[in-house]
Design a binder for these strands. Structure first.
Length: 820
RNA sequence: GCGAGCGUGGUGGAACUGGUAGACACACAGGACUUAAAAUCCUGAGGCAGAAAUGCCGUGCGGGUUCGACUCCCGCCGCUCGUACCA
């Protein structure tokens, strides 16, 4: 065989063979367990970046490994094709978003094929095609029927110059990114879906999935279920009452004021007669809508002049407008207890409002100093609370709740931080929302009229959505009355498309239904792999859709993703790759230079999946060097025509036996690292160790040659999930007739792993002092005797008495001593 | 601000369940081969002291638990992700 490793020749040849044989097409197979391995599909932004390469290599390695372990593995791929970048590109280059998107898809599909990922391309989908989004429109129509979709007002960032709604990322330092105009908050009527109806299930079912604990914790906190009390204050001079929600009714006697959101009806009403209030409220709308900005803005407030009556003391308390109170959470009003809530404390201190301590710690607590900070622990006891004095948290909670309930003004409730999902976007490049506005109100277009097709021949100029100006799109007829009607011009949030694509892949060929019975064969996804940045929103929305689809009878499972693997970022020089920082690395250039196998190998070797990966061009060169070494190792073995005689372990020379043991230790390590741990970097390191040992080994006898030859064969197989092209090529060169992708994963010869003697570490007081070689059958007493006899150990035992001995089998001995 | 992570040699990382810190690489230095270079191969290396044997120190910082802590607990510092219209 040729002496030189030529990746470009090998890779295109191997890929052509896979294509011709349809190696990765999948259908149901009752003889094998199914495994659905899914990577988060990409946004077709133009070309693949390193994050994609990393993500998809991880999925491909696992898929190939499991296929060799007897699973019927499905690995599909598609395109998250709607979204803002297409509109931005359209503005910049005067290309319609559709054309730009389809070009990008064609290019990126080619790149994925070049990287050798084993996808079932028959199932490919792009979310911007009517074939796909018609079923999303169909599902939305079902949601409308069931009352899961509704309209309400919501705040958006408004650019007064471009006359358009801006995404949070398009608002930079309070100004529109293109116009530079000061952005203001506006309230507009929007479409919402009731994800909060599923809040309890979304929370409780987290216990049933095999996800990283950190992601489950983030979702639990995001949903934020809390037990609290909802009650109302009477207002002097008004008949309507003011509703608040609190998780700390035990502090009710410490209320010194009430804070309401700037958009609360009481604030709006008060501002009518007081211009300074109106000005303050207007000021509050200068901050962009993002929670991070709202929470970090300086806390500002203004007294409304209105008041409430404390329900238990009858005291009159002022109502303040505070810019940090959110209308979306609870009722948009909070009872303020500055002594026991840090935000209330800061606000009260800033505006000279009274602070009244009503909880005291049990015992000494140096952090308890209400003059310096709020004391927010729930471990204290009520004080200065009249009849509620001397109660711990739970008892005080119950007593106060019972009293408010008895008064007929309050009740214990469950509250969620999770809000309903706003799914309407005032943008063009998205799925049309299938409703019409008629003189009888809003109606769905009806299933027979689906899909509502998005016109693709448009001009995008950044001044609002071009859909609004397309009269041929907007003007329609109400099929019920035959009178003119207007189509909805809002489109769906692109999270809608990514919330069910995983299910459509499993039912990709269904023409007359969103999902058919095949979906339930493949689902749930056995392993879902993608960026940690999707830990909350995308994963929560997809879980929600899955439950809705189940309740509609389309699916039988409760959760979409059984197991989740979240990968870290790809960094260069310590920070995220980005065009603005000029630290991007183009995978294409590396594929052209070294081949796909090298890029795959380095990406898997540089870090385990869940950690961030620091890119290194030198590291890639090193990975390539390793593959060249493997290539020439195999080429030598082939050219030497080593014998393949049968052998028994007992008859091997000591060196050959060492090599044979190392081989089987490596098989065990690689299988565990790929199959269980998903730590490919240590799997590769283990193969490198084996290759190093092989290079040091010169086979002499026929049996030496046979062991050596067997080890070479296994190296090729062990690397094959990671470097499938090179492995396929070498496998053929080694004269193997069964195709590599069809063979079974190597098994471990456990007999080869046993050792007659092993190393034991000897410590004195936890410090390493010696290593001893111990016979496998040695008793504890013998081991301790041998340890104490060691020169380096005796040195530290002199003048000491042994207090304790610790013996960890196969690992270490620790002699604990103290001066005699 | 809030929620969740991460922090180990010059660099990426290893140490999986509390049991040998630095596997495997990268970069570097020295050597072999070469007219020379590249490529390839061999050797070396956490820091300090020492000729060496060896000793002491060492996993962001400060404390704690333990026979033993990179690993567990508490408090800080720094970085990363998310924060509901980026995907």
């Amino acid at each position: 065989m040729e002496r030189d490793y030529q990746p470009s020749v090998i890779e295109s040849k191997v890929q052509a063979a896979w294509d011709a044989e349809g190696v990765f097409s999948r259908s149901e197979d009752p003889a094998k367990p199914k495994f659905y391995c899914l990577c988060m599909f990409p946004y077709p932004s133009g070309k693949l970046h390193m994050g994609h390469v990393r993500n998809y290599t991880i999925g491909d390695v696992i898929s190939r490994y499991l296929t060799m372990n007897g699973y019927n593995v499905l690995q599909p791929m598609g395109w998250d094709a709607f979204g803002m970048p297409a509109e931005n590109a359209a503005i910049k280059n005067q290309v319609p978003p559709a054309a730009w998107t389809y070009d990008n898809i064609a290019h990126m599909r080619g790149q994925l094929k070049q990287l050798g990922f084993g996808y079932d391309w028959n199932r490919e989908l792009a979310t911007c095609t009517p074939d796909y989004y018609r079923w999303e429109q169909w599902l939305f129509t079902r949601m409308l029927e069931r009352g899961l979709a509704y309209r309400k007002k919501a705040r958006v960032n408004w650019d007064p110059v471009d006359q358009t709604v801006l995404a949070n990322e398009q608002v930079i330092d309070g100004r529109g990114w293109r116009s530079g105009a000061l952005v203001e908050q506006r309230e507009i009527e929007q479409w919402f879906i009731r994800i909060t109806d599923y809040a309890d299930q979304l929370l409780d079912d987290l216990d049933t999935v095999d996800w990283p604990e950190q992601v489950k914790t983030m979702q639990r906190n995001w949903i934020g279920r809390s037990q609290g009390v909802e009650f109302s204050f009477a207002r002097p001079g008004h008949t309507e009452r003011l509703e608040v929600y609190t998780t700390r009714p035990d502090t009710i006697m410490g209320i010194t004021y009430v804070a309401i959101a700037p958009t609360h009806p009481i604030a709006t009403k008060a501002a009518e007669s007081r211009p300074e209030l109106a000005a303050f409220i207007a000021d509050c709308t200068r901050i962009k809508v993002a929670e991070a900005d709202l929470a970090q803005a300086p806390k500002l407030g203004m007294a409304t002049g209105e008041s409430v009556i404390h329900p238990l003391t009858g005291e009159e308390l002022p109502i303040w407008i505070a810019n940090f109170v959110l209308m979306e959470y609870g009722s948009g009003a909070v009872m303020a207890v500055p002594a026991h809530d840090q935000r209330d404390w800061e606000f009260a201190t800033q505006y000279g409002l009274p602070i009244r301590a009503v909880i005291a710690p049990q015992g000494e607590d140096p952090t308890y100093d209400i003059g310096q900070a709020a004391w927010t622990e729930k471990t204290g006891m009520t004080i200065a609370s009249g009849e509620f004095d001397g109660l711990p948290f739970a008892a005080a909670f119950d007593a106060v709740a019972a009293r408010l309930e008895a008064l007929g003004i309050g009740r214990v409730t469950t509250n969620y931080r999770l809000r309903d999902w706003g799914i309407g976007r005032q943008r063009y490049w998205g799925c049309p929302i299938p409703v019409i506005y008629t003189d009888e109100g809003i109606k769905p277009v009806g299933d027979h009229a689906l899909p509502v097709v998005l016109p693709e021949d448009v001009v995008v100029d950044g001044q609002g959505s071009p859909l609004v100006r397309r009269h041929d799109f907007v003007q329609t007829i109400d099929p019920e009355t035959q009178r003119p009607a207007q189509r909805e011009t809002d489109t769906f949030d692109t999270f809608m498309e990514s919330s069910w694509y995983y299910a459509r892949f499993a039912s990709a060929f269904s023409q007359d239904a969103m999902l058919d019975r095949h979906a339930n064969y493949w689902l749930p996804v056995d392993l879902y792999i993608g960026g940690i940045e999707h830990a909350i929103l995308h994963l929560l929305y997809a879980r929600f859709f899955h439950k809705v689809l189940r309740d509609l009878g389309l699916l039988t499972s409760d959760e979409p993703f059984k197991k989740l693997l979240t990968q870290g970022m790809v960094l260069k020089d310590g920070s995220k790759m980005s065009k603005s920082k000029g630290n991007t690395v183009d995978p294409q250039a590396l594929i052209d230079l070294y081949g796909a196998d090298t890029v795959r190998l380095f990406t898997m070797f540089a870090a385990p999946p869940e950690q961030s990966l620091e890119w290194s061009d030198e590291g890639v060169a090193g990975a390539h060097r390793f593959l060249k070494r493997v290539y020439s190792l195999v080429a030598d073995a082939v050219n030497q025509r080593y014998t393949d005689v049968p052998f028994t372990v007992a008859d091997l020379s000591p060196e050959a036996r060492d090599l044979y043991r190392k081989l089987h230790e490596t098989i065990a390590k690689v299988s565990d690292d790929i199959g269980r741990r998903y730590h490919f970097n240590t799997a590769i390191a283990a193969v490198m160790e084996l290759v190093n040992q092989l290079q040091r080994f010169t086979p002499e006898s026929a049996m030496d040659q046979a062991v050596y030859r067997q080890a070479i064969d296994r190296v090729v197989v062990l690397l094959s999930p990671i470097t499938p092209h090179l492995s396929t090529h070498l496998w053929q060169a080694l004269g193997q007739s069964t195709p590599l992708h069809a063979i079974a994963w190597p098994t471990v010869d456990t007999a080869a792993l046993t050792r007659d003697v092993y190393m034991l570490v000897v410590q004195v007081n936890g410090k390493l002092r010696a290593r001893i070689e111990v016979a496998a059958e040695a008793t504890d007493v013998e081991i301790l005797k041998q340890a104490r006899a060691e020169q380096q150990v005796r040195k530290f035992l002199e003048g000491m008495t042994e207090v304790k001995t610790i013996l960890v089998p196969q690992k270490l001995v620790n002699l604990v001593v103290k001066p005699a």
